[in-house]
Each structure stands twice: as C-alpha cells, then as structure tokens.
Simulated scan of single mutants.
Amino acid sequence: MSQPIEVDLPHSLGKDEARRRIANNVHRLTDHIPGGAHVESGWTGDQLNLRIQALGDSIQSTIDVQETKVVVKVLLPGMLGMFSGVIAGALQKKGNVLLEDHTKG
C-alpha cells in the first residue's frame, strides 16, 4: 500500500519566477537523496511530474507551482511509507532548495 505525503512550501516569488527556479534546480534533487537516485521529470503546465528511482523503489511525485506556494506531493511505495513522517520533515526543511536562485553570482 502506498503512503501519500503533501508539503506546502510558501514563497513570495510569484508563479513564473518559482517555476523558473524549480526548472533550473530540479537536477539538484539527486544531491539530497541518500544512496543516490535517478530522477526523470517533465512539465505539464505549472506542474512538474517526477519519477524518482532510489533504494530499489520508484517514487512518483508532483510539484504544483502556485502564486504564493509550491505544493509537493509524494507517493511512497511499500515499506518507504513507514518513513513518511521523516520524509515529510525533510521535504519541509530542505524543499526550499528548489526555489533558490543560482543564476546570480
């Protein structure tokens, strides 16, 4: 049985800027997943669909970009569902990495 997680990441960037930053940072997700991972992604409007393969499992996720928040939804398969609280906490704590601006420097 799968365990869903939903985390809101508030921002004040506006939808277009938040979407741009997420698009520029999605490749960095693998740096934050223990044990390495393979990430496939694709946009449908303002929603980024992700398939993450890590630790022998495939995890489906969406990132919905809204004007004042980003909604991250993750569907944890099987045994990973037991770690839903820990994973939700990590998403809340580190999720804003996706909204960082790395174009200036």
Rank of each mutant, 00 (worst) to 15 (best):
A90Q: 15
N24F: 03
G89L: 06
E100K: 13
Q3L: 02
L91K: 04
K73R: 15
D46M: 01
V86S: 14
I63W: 00
G89F: 13
L13S: 01
G89V: 04
V72H: 06
P34E: 15
Q60D: 13
V97L: 10
E17V: 15
R19P: 02
G14H: 11
H32D: 14
V74Y: 03
V72F: 10
F83T: 12
D101C: 10
L9Y: 09
I5R: 09
I5N: 09
S58N: 11
M1W: 10
G78I: 07
K104V: 14
I63M: 05
K93V: 12
W43A: 05
A88S: 15
L50K: 08
L48H: 01
K104G: 01
G36V: 01
P10D: 03
I63Q: 00
G78N: 14
L98R: 06
A90S: 12
T68D: 14
M82S: 10
V39D: 02
S84D: 12
S84W: 01
H38S: 08
K94N: 14
H102T: 11
L29W: 01
I59P: 00
S2I: 05
E67M: 13
N24C: 02
V39N: 04
S84G: 06
I63C: 01
S2L: 06
N96V: 06
V86I: 15
L98T: 05
A37I: 02
G85F: 11
G14S: 08
T68V: 12
K15P: 00
Q47K: 11
G45C: 05
A37K: 09
G85N: 15
S2N: 04
D16T: 12
L99M: 08
V86T: 15
G78M: 09
S84F: 07
L29Y: 03
I5G: 09
V70C: 04
P77Q: 05
W43T: 03
F83Y: 12
D64Y: 04
V74P: 01
S61R: 09
H32E: 14
A88K: 15
I5H: 03
S58L: 08
I87T: 04
L99K: 06
R19F: 02
G35R: 00
M79D: 04
H11S: 04
D57H: 11
V70Q: 03
R51H: 07
I52R: 12
A23H: 06
E40S: 02
V7R: 09
D8H: 15
R20P: 00
P77H: 04
M1P: 12
A88C: 09
G42Q: 04
G95H: 07
E17N: 11
E100G: 03
T68I: 07
V65Q: 05
L50G: 02
V97A: 06
I5C: 14
D46N: 13
R19H: 13
D8W: 13
Q3D: 08
T103L: 06
I52F: 07
V7F: 08
G81T: 11
N49W: 06
A54K: 05
K73E: 13
R20G: 00
Q53M: 09
Q92L: 13
K93M: 13
L13I: 12
R20D: 01
E100I: 01
V26M: 02
K94W: 14
V72Y: 11
T44R: 08
V86A: 15
D46V: 03
N96H: 15
A37V: 06
D8T: 07
Q92H: 13
G105D: 02
Q92Y: 13
